[in-house]
Structures are given as C-alpha cells and as structure tokens.
Design a protein around this nucleic acid. Structure first.
Lengths: 237, 237
DNA sequence: GAGTGGTCTAGACCACTTG
DNA sequence: AAGTGGTCTAGACCACTCG
C-alpha cells in the first residue's frame, strides 16, 4: 500500500468488518486519527470520505463519525464485478460453459453501440452454472482493436482477469442498465428455465481508464436467482 | 451556493450538459481552472472528483480530464429519488392513489427491520399511475417517533418533501435491494397487470443524516415499466 | 466554550504522458 | 523537459453540537 489514505481506509474498514469498532459507536475524531496514523487531517478526511461513500460510516457535523453495520450481512454486488469475482465471494460450485467465441463484422446496431469504424468484434456467448443449474446467459461483444486475441480457455476462466493482468489494461467505469423482459428463444434453450416467464437483462457498456469503450455486455439472469444490492446517498447537487 | 467547489462543479456540469464542452474533448487543466475560478487547486480537484463520480468526466493522469457524454440520453434513476421527483423529470401525467394511511403496532418482523422497541409505525399504501396505467405499488412503513403525524394529503403529494421541508429532517442514505418475484394477490388487485407474470420489488431501508433508520419501503413495479440506470466505477480497495 | 466535522489555501513532491 | 493529475502537509476559519 503506497497511499497513506488507502492505508487508513483499509485499516478502519477491516476493523469495522471484524467488529473491533462497534456499530452505532463513534470513531475517534479526525484530529485523533491524524495523530495516531501520523498524518495530516486532510488525509484522514480522504479516508473517512471513502468509508462514508462505501457505507461503512456516517459523518455528522459537530458530533463525529458513527459506525454503520450495513456490511454485516451483505457483500457488494453493485458496482463493477465479473462473474468470476462474484462466484468467489458467494462460494458454492460454479461452472462456465463457453458456447461461442468468434470474430465478426459488427452489425450496424452493434457498430453504433460500440462506436466503431472498421474494427472487428469478438462475440462470446457463455452460460453460467451454479449448483447444477444454468442460471445466467452472458453475451459479450468486445472491440478487437483493444483485445486482439481471445481464446476459448480465457473465456472459460475470466476475461476481466485476462484483460487486467495479461494485457495490463485498466477497466475504468461502466454504464449499466437493468430491465426485465420476455425471454428469447436462446434464453429458453440455453438456461434451465422452469416456469419463470421473465428474464432480467443487465446491459453494460464498459470503458477503460483512458475512456475508450471496449465492451458491450448483456447478462441475462433467471429472475429467481437475481439480486442487486446497492448503497445510495441522498445528493442535492 | 455558498461552497466554492459546488459552484465549480455545477458550473462545469451544466456546461457539459449544454454541450459547451464537447464530448471526448479535454477540460482545461486543474491549474488553469484554479486561476479562472480564482480558487486553489485542491478546491478545483474536489469539484472534478465530484464530476468523475457522477459520470461527467474521466480523469487521466498525465493527460487531463476528458468529457464523457453519458448524460446525453439518461437521467439518473439510481440513487435516492422519490416518485414525485422522478415523475417531474420523466414528464407525462402521473397520479397517486392513496389506499391506506394507518398507525399500527408493528409486526415482530417489521419491528426487527426498523430496529424498533415500542414505537408505532405508519403504514402507507399507494398506487402510482402513469399515463392511465397503474404501474407501481408503494408500501411504506415509517417510524412514528420520527414522523409524528401523517395525513392523506401529504401522502398524495410527497412524503419526502414533507419530511425534508416541513419537518426539516435530512435524508442521509439508503440500503437498497432489487429482486424479481411472483406477484402477490395485492399486486394483481391494485395494479394493471396484463399478462406479466413477475414483479420487480425494490426494498429500501432509508436513514436520516444522523444515522437514524426511519423508513422501510417496498416499491413494487410492473416489469415492463421498470428500468434502472447506474454508473459504476471499478474500484480496487 | 470546547470539541467536532466542513471548507479552503499555498505550496510541496511524485508519477505519468507527450513532444 | 514541460505539463498533467495524484498525494500530502500545516494551518486557517467556519458551522454545528453539547454540556
């Protein structure tokens, strides 16, 4: 950890998760934290703001910072995480079936979505199985000029890991949309779909840290297995 | 606007929304912005970080801040907004039918959820109609020790507005969960439910700025009218 | 009035990108 | 080498809470 404010953030966050700081109790004041961590108050404040943004504490002017316990039951499912990462957190056995890995000329619609000129696009279709049931259908469309090669085995493992660790690209941010729709024929074919009549569709536009759009993803979830947890602050901007 | 960093934030944000700053172009450097706004660089940075968090720009070390255009089509539906606020943004005629406003002894389950001892709880049941169709069923449970009185007409208008403006309480943050479930008999009775077999349920635990839990809400949406848009950054903490 | 968090400053050094 | 954003500092003043 080279950044002092991340050090402070991680230290306090893990103490809250471990229960060393009791929920509803108060953290030491910013001034105290600055001296115990041997840093300036602004640096402590940076760490505390991160904690507040992530739902660990609530800061109250004139009083102090109160420890919340929203993290006792939930792991973060919001934000940007790959299936592999979620599967690791949730536990239980999971498997990925790769149905398709091809390099294609994009359709006009896809070219517009991915803001392409002449580039080709990787199509990846994967089915995610958890505890014996095929639950999620992931359809990825990836700009080939950014990810030149893609093999079946990297798709089986984790595309994000490959992109971040092998290609050393940094994922920056994503625009995400969740809707509930009628299942397609493909959904019914590839997923274990008992009597559920709808399907949850998460559409993701994923950008790199340098603001290049590199991926469009549709993640189609069987509704009974879908759950989205979020933490939101009231903002008046 | 008394805060300088909010002034800078709002000024740049509105210039981006208006198109005065071209998407994909670069903002002036932090140093330049500091001099034009006659403030320090750290204050400019605070404003730019807010812009980045809200998807207006992407900051790239060594290069500059790039203007994004994610806000061209979408209004924010994520975060904490009341139906009244959304309805205002979306436009179209909307109406609220209040079905129930009662003060009750909470069930054990509700007492646990709202972390209550002896307090009574307001039950509010409302149906939201948009363009002639009854689409959303909102069930609110509000701690009476925080909101002592509640009338039918405030429920028709906006409970949040009442709480923030009349009672002068500050909404702080919420924990939110989205799932897709089988509709209840109540859903089918109160909503215009054609052949949709599932219902989207948004469960909200809403806290005040002083970290007191004051409301539990279930917002039940007809699936074809549900849409959740989010902007997420990849975080490695 | 003492203690708390919120804002702001002026300057320093660093890591990174680009010519 | 020059310019950019990222981190950090020491100190200032303010607004708020509480005894």
């Amino acid at each position: 950890m080279r950044n002092k404010y991340l050090e402070v953030f991680n230290d306090i966050a893990s103490q809250i998760k471990q229960g060393s700081f009791e929920p509803q109790s108060k953290l030491p004041s910013e001034h105290e934290l600055a001296t115990t961590y041997e840093t300036s108050r602004e640096t402590v404040r940076k760490a505390l703001n991160l904690l507040a943004q992530n739902g660990y504490i609530q800061k109250i002017r004139g009083k102090g910072s109160i420890v919340l316990d929203l993290h006792k039951y939930d792991f973060p499912v919001s934000g940007l995480v790959s299936f592999k990462e979620i599967a690791n957190v949730v536990g239980g056995d999971s498997r990925t079936h790769v149905h398709e890995v091809t390099l294609n000329n994009p359709t006009p619609d896809l070219r517009r979505k991915l803001e392409l000129d002449e580039e080709l696009v990787w199509h990846v279709v994967r089915v995610r199985e958890m505890e014996g049931e095929r639950i999620i259908l992931d359809k990825d469309y990836i700009n080939q000029s950014i990810v030149p090669t893609l093999t079946r085995s990297t798709c089986e493992e984790s595309i994000y890991r490959y992109i971040e660790e092998e290609l050393e690209l940094d994922i920056g941010f994503a625009k995400k949309e969740i809707t509930v729709e009628e299942p397609s024929r493909e959904d019914l074919q590839l997923l274990d779909f008992e009597s559920y009549s709808n399907i949850v569709v998460i559409r993701n536009f994923v950008y790199l840290k340098d603001a290049r759009l590199f991926q469009y993803t549709e993640s189609r979830h069987r509704p009974d297995k879908f759950r989205f947890v979020d933490f939101a602050r009231r903002e008046k901007l």
